[in-house]
Design a protein around this nucleic acid. Structure first.
Lengths: 359, 359
DNA sequence: TATTAGCACTCAGAAAAGGCGAGTGCTAAG
DNA sequence: CTTAGCACTCGCCTTTTCTGAGTGCTAATA
């Protein structure tokens, strides 16, 4: 059933007002809006219809209306107006975008904190691999007597290392040999194809360095199997700044007991459709504890084979338009930073103003 | 002024009861204790004295007594009884102690989560360097056309790496030369001694690889200057499980606005005295926002030059004895795990029961 | 002198009662 | 189809009352 333009206008107004006041919206409040030319009585009638359709809800008989999850969904998909970041906002986003660390994990963690701070809501950042990881390059470095550093480069320009301490003494030549063997037999091999057979062959060819092999393989397999980097979830406490949680600490606690890092890492799989921006509204969510919680997430490109996701967690009543705009701004600039690789702090993000998303 | 034995007994009882009930303790509750042989009236008199001395407080005239910060401090320093972990507790601690990851930062983050989970309070884990870091070994690996991996080993067995992408093409030999130069000129040099002069000398000796030098040095200096690893603070929400914060979300939020990762990293400097266990009680704390908050922290050994700290954040009214016991158990076993280096998950922590601390 | 029983008094917090007013749905007129 | 008018509902805020745990003091007791 299609909505009339007027109904759309009213629904949009209700969401907009409710989002900023957190109070049920009455017919008079809407009638008072500048571009509304019909009386509160008319609006009451329309609101009754919208309630009938399941787009609005009434906390109790004598209260105003509140958008239902379906109402939010409609709003997001069709009604939401682009939010244009103000110059002030762009400015502080830009200032925030200075990442200090150069290490990948730390950068992602900083990104999470940043998003949380700039949206004043709990947020997360994570990196996911688009396809299965494969090893690209092995190296073994002698770091001292009995100390060997294993350096492993994966697809997607991820470099991992591990310090291995071994009572057995090996020579540089042994290490060189083992590294060569590893490079020859494991490069570009997905984890599933690394079977016992392969391992045995490596062990045999490794010569004096063979005691190293199990340690090396352990680490390598661990790295390969890790489909996504850690989820960096932060700012949980900011949820308490939201009026709906102000006196419901218990509920807030529940939210994050359910929505932990592990759950977040699985969210992309649950999503209805694909696209750069994703909204998870209330009951669409997976768990009952999250029925009043929404998540807005956005992807950005990190580099070959890797993809970043930033997301914001908030009450269903959240300013989807503004959050989307901010996330979009982040995504755009982070994407640029990461892709250039090297030194992100050296590259000031362009002062793009405003953000697009579907109307 | 010295306390009589009876006063000590009463103070201890009040703390113990208050810690578990979170309700002001009345004279009758103490009189009902099995090993108390004096009447509630006597206790009332003693309580009046203790209040006079500033060890107890009275929320209001007709309420029981609550320990004052000074009371807690006395309790911790002199009255606290060793808490003996139950077999069940030791068991679940042991189960939890299986660290999955092999990467240092991730391990520390897991440790934080673990401590938080097992104490049901916000917790953190961090690693601090006992002395200034120096570089121990440099290596440069050719990872592909224009891709170079810098591997840097620091004192304390910390290995860092960075992928450098460079439009300039360099040969393996160039890299080898640069690595040799770096090793020769920077090894064991503290950050302060790495001056422009030194850099210039390196640049000059680097030959074809000299465009790499600034990038390498940037990263190296960053690593050297980082006195402590990240603070991994987690489980903030668990503070809400404490009755004093149940309906005071705002206060809980304030706590962590103040006590953020940065502040935590500075805590050790604020501490009155040294020792493996440290207590920060209420107003001893640095900021006014933390006046009802305590921190218990404990050090553990990670390996040469490095030291780990785990800590728990909670209301002043927290079970110092139990928390201390649990932290101690963690510290002991983590220390053992980290020192053995290699594969922590391979080493089941001994089933030490009970924990010591001063009586 | 140290302890205890007894008692009047205090006061926070729970429960009950009352009042306010925003907002609704309906009806009837424009 | 729209709107003015009006009776009605009901959450929430404020006020009031009530209750009982706990105190401090006094006077009796060991």
């Amino acid at each position: 059933m299609e909505l009339t333009d007027r109904q759309k206008q009213i629904l949009r107004a209700i969401v907009d007002i409710y989002v900023s006041t957190a109070e049920p919206v009455g017919s008079k409040a809407i009638a008072a809006l500048p571009d509304v030319n019909f009386s509160s009585a008319t609006i009451r009638n329309e609101m009754a219809d919208l309630t009938q359709m399941g787009l609005l809800e009434q906390p109790h008989t004598s209260a105003g209306r509140v958008p239902s999850p379906a109402g939010y969904r409609l709003y997001i998909d069709e009604l939401m107006q682009d939010y244009r970041l103000s110059l002030d906002e762009t400015k502080s986003l830009n200032e925030a975008l200075e990442l200090k660390s150069q290490e990948f994990d730390q950068m992602m963690s900083q990104v999470g904190k940043l998003v949380s701070k700039m949206t004043d809501l709990p947020a997360y950042a994570m990196a996911t691999r688009q396809s299965g990881a494969v090893a690209k390059h092995f190296d073994l470095i002698m770091a001292g007597p009995g100390s060997i550093i294993l350096v492993l480069m994966l697809s997607g320009d991820v470099v991992k290392n591990k310090l291995i301490k071994l009572p057995v003494s090996v020579t540089e030549a042994d290490l060189k040999l083992l590294a060569a063997v590893l490079n020859a037999s494991l490069t570009d091999l997905p984890a599933q194809q690394i079977t016992g057979e392969v391992l045995e062959k490596i062990s045999r060819s490794a010569g004096a360095a063979s005691p190293l092999v199990p340690l090396v393989m352990d680490f390598t397999l661990e790295c390969l199997r890790q489909q996504h980097g850690d989820v960096h979830l932060t700012g949980q406490m900011r949820l308490l700044g939201q009026p709906e949680y102000r006196d419901a600490a218990e509920k807030a606690q529940e939210v994050f007991e359910t929505l932990d890092e592990e759950m977040i890492s699985k969210l992309p799989a649950v999503l209805p459709k694909d696209g750069p921006v994703q909204f998870l509204v209330g009951p669409e969510n997976v768990a009952r504890e999250l029925k009043d919680t929404s998540v807005v997430m956005m992807r950005f490109d990190i580099g070959e084979g890797m993809q970043g996701t930033i997301g914001v967690v908030g009450p269903t009543r959240m300013d989807y338009a503004k959050i989307t705009a901010k996330l979009g701004y982040f995504a755009e600039n982070l994407g640029r930073m990461f892709q250039k690789g090297g030194t992100p702090s050296a590259m000031p993000p362009a002062l793009t103003e405003g953000m697009k998303n579907e109307e």
